[in-house]
Design a protein around this nucleic acid. Structure first.
Lengths: 350, 350
DNA sequence: ATGAAAGCGCTAACAG
DNA sequence: CTGTTAGCGCTTTCAT
């Protein structure tokens, strides 16, 4: 930060005017003689002048920077969201300060504290846990910090958020399985910590609703009780294997995400079951490479980039208009992408 | 940015001391009476005092923030690098200002300008093009801006960088194919813009070297001349199909990355060729889901997280020590991950 | 049409 | 052990 030697003072001295005049020239504001303006601009150019945005931020009390905290970047999920956010940030000349919580609520808090100390104008966060930091967020809201939650939310908290309609996604996935004639559909989840997230809860609720529509009142969830293990694919493999080895049966699986779906498929195959012939499986997320899977995965696609864009736009609106606009909680519709793991291509049209 | 009402002045008035004393208490610096210190700390706590880091930044002329510009986040590649960077950033209390260039050199420049205006302490960038911004980077270096390039570099530019040893990766991939008995090995690339990147050039060089070791002096590259099309998988599909339809033959393909590999596989299969029975294919990157591919993909794994970590550490070192440490250009070794698309599992050990 | 001066919230040199 | 003072580079009010 020692470069960019020229500041407004230097230009002022060079041209022989005051700092204020330089300011007016640079921002083309207020009355100023065209000649002086031009001169100043030229000198600024020659000196390679660049505004010091931190000085400006201190003065005007805004940084044109937003903080973004996500769970992690390994799956393609938050990466796509990030690109969406980046798009609107670049268009509006905002900067993005990014950090990952890796699923730890305490890390999430300390990151946010750091971002606040850096005086970001607002915050976008995918909360690691729906309860752990509830009070913390309540305080933030009380302090009028502009916040929008993404992907997951905190039930009952009066805060903006934008996420996928996970309940609908779960419903779509399960109904598809049902329409294919499957009746013993299990839900495979991904470890106790993730299991609490509103996104997962929503998917499960959708699964239940679809079953209920077909008068199936019994749900089977594979996963709970097992030791949490990463990667999630492994966890799912264990969950399904365990169930099968105990004599459990199924003809369909709705996996909480694509990695889990693959773990389930692998377990199924290792026990001699064919996918999709014996068991249909559908995943969730439609990650970039799901179409390359073996077999190509039927899955629920989330509008990831759109989540990022909408959330960013919403945050900017909140930053500019404060409390004057109503709270917004937007749920974006997912859609089913039918490939081969569900076996839809095998059944003849009726 | 209107929250965090309490500043050092307020604490000072409240306690009845000077701002300097408050400063000393907060930073535990200089001589200060334990009693006063304790008192000040307590009041700070009560008032919910938080330091204003932008004021501090202005004063000390450093922001504890680094700028990171990547090509894009859609592939898992930069996401993993990002996590590596995030790890060291969090450990050292640095912030990361992130933006994507989407492969456009001019966007890359304007992003960097913005980051510099925000006074980041240093820059990590994956340059979109090896030539376009050469002068720009030369100026940056002349201005003593700490910069480390990642993944790709600018030939001949005396700047730190950390990347995968792509030449070695290409060599490993090709030699593996050769050892499997393949002799007609084609290189499939991914569009003219990407083709210029040092990473791709390196992979191609490695491919050539391996062939030369087997006294094969003819290289075949599929892709050049075709209209650039996204996604890359599509591009590769077209390239390979076109070649095949013109009567071209091959028994091995080295794809510049995993997506391209999959496009190639799809083209091969559509023309009745079996992978790996008729043609062996190996990709590059080992993206998270490559193991789920149909068939599971043999590919060259890059130490992505490590690139991020090393680059970040190097940048911090450069920031702290300036020109006193020598230029560092580190090439991390990739390794081959053998799965099934190459057919290694089919040949009996000799 | 231009300038003087104050101040954003912090750090640091110097004085006592 | 504590206080005074002077900025960092910009924006903005008020004066001329």
């Amino acid at each position: 930060m020692k470069r960019s030697r020229a500041d407004m003072d230097m230009i002022a001295r060079e041209v022989g005017v005051s700092k204020t005049t330089v300011y007016r020239a640079l921002h083309n504001k207020g009355r100023i003689h065209p000649k002086t303006r031009e001169h100043i601009l030229r000198v600024a150019q020659e000196l390679g002048y660049r505004p010091n945005l931190v000085a400006r931020s201190l003065r005007i009390q805004k940084t044109s920077t937003i903080g973004l905290v996500v769970i992690g970047l390994t799956g393609s999920f938050y990466s796509h969201i990030l690109e969406g956010v980046d798009g609107v940030a670049q268009a509006t000349e905002y900067g993005i300060l990014l950090a990952c919580s890796y699923g730890y609520p305490d890390k999430e808090r300390s990151i946010i504290q750091m971002l606040l100390d850096k005086r970001v104008d607002g915050l976008m966060v995918a909360p690691a846990d729906p309860e752990e930091n509830r009070e913390f967020y309540e305080e933030l809201l009380a302090l009028q910090v502009p916040v929008v939650l993404i992907d997951r939310y905190i039930p009952g908290l009066p805060v903006d958020f934008v996420a996928t309609n996970n309940e609908l996604g779960g419903y779509l996935a399960t109904r598809h399985l049902l329409q294919l004639g499957r009746r013993q559909i299990v839900f495979v989840s991904n470890g106790s910590r993730e299991r609490r997230a509103t996104s997962v809860i929503g998917r499960f609720a959708g699964y239940q609703r679809a079953l209920a529509e077909y008068n199936i009142c019994q749900t089977v969830e594979l996963g709970p009780g097992l030791p949490d293990i990463l990667p999630e694919e492994e966890y799912a493999y264990n969950a399904v294997s365990h169930y099968l080895d105990q004599g459990g049966t199924m003809d369909g699986v709705f996996a909480v995400n694509d990695d889990v779906a693959y773990g389930a498929i692998r377990a199924l195959q290792s026990r001699g079951l064919r996918v999709p012939d014996d068991v249909s499986v559908v995943g969730f997320d439609n990650q970039d490479t799901a179409k390359f899977f073996l077999p190509p995965l039927t899955t629920v696609a989330q509008p990831m980039r759109k989540i990022g864009q909408q959330a960013a736009s919403l945050l900017l609106e909140r930053i500019h208009k404060g409390r004057s606009i109503p709270q917004q909680q937007v749920l974006l519709a997912p859609h089913l992408v039918v490939r081969q793991s569900c076996g839809a291509h095998l059944v003849k049209k009726s």
